[in-house]
């Protein structure tokens, strides 16, 4: 009962045979070997598996690979370019927006869409914006700062020089 699907992942087209019941996250990790996308809770709660599907952030543990047929998928592996890190990656690095790093790929991909809708979000908007992503290390404060840093940088403004908080 396998079906053929074609998905574009980080700009590269892949034609694959999948069973309808295969989840998008499994295809990304196990068939395409892009293991930056993590599986955390496997129950649509933690957001570690967040990728972009046609530009919208989704939890790839709750989408069938076959639903992505003909669509574009973006994963954390596609964020950095030859010129260097994506402003969000730089923000997380500069502001200690991660500790163990498990939630980070999902946080980054969610934040990409958040900044696309709102290029200058308030702290409250950022916190609502990442409500579907759990982090058990940072207490979120430095993640919020990392996203603020990226938002300033992407607007061409000076990046905030606040000291990271250690909690």
């Amino acid at each position: 009962m396998k079906k053929q699907i074609t998905i574009s992942v980080n700009g590269e087209k892949h034609t694959l045979e999948v069973e309808p019941r295969e989840l998008l996250v499994h295809v990304i990790r196990e068939k395409l070997r892009l293991t930056g996308t993590h599986i955390g809770c496997d129950t649509t709660s933690c957001g570690a598996c967040t990728v972009l599907l046609n530009g919208k952030s989704i939890k790839s543990c709750t989408v069938l690979a076959i639903q992505a047929d003909g669509k574009e998928v973006s994963t954390v592996e596609g964020l950095a370019t030859a010129e260097g890190l994506h402003p969000l990656q730089e923000g997380f690095k500069e502001n200690h927006g991660l500790h163990c790093g498990f939630c980070t790929p999902g946080m980054l991909m969610r934040a990409v869409e958040l900044l696309e809708h709102n290029d200058n979000p308030t702290e409250e908007e950022i916190r609502w914006g990442i409500a579907g992503n759990l982090c058990r290390c940072t207490g979120y404060n430095n993640i919020v700062k990392a996203i603020q840093y990226a938002s300033a940088k992407m607007r061409g403004e000076e990046t905030p020089s606040t000291e990271p908080e250690f909690v």
């Binding site: 649509t44 919208k56 952030s57 939890k59 989408v63 969610r110 914006g129 409500a131 579907g132 992503n133």
Partner: peptide
């Protein structure tokens, strides 16, 4: 909508 699940879920 703001109180339904989270942004990723609301995208689907």
């Amino acid at each position: 909508t703001k109180l339904i699940a989270d942004p990723q879920v609301r995208n689907m």
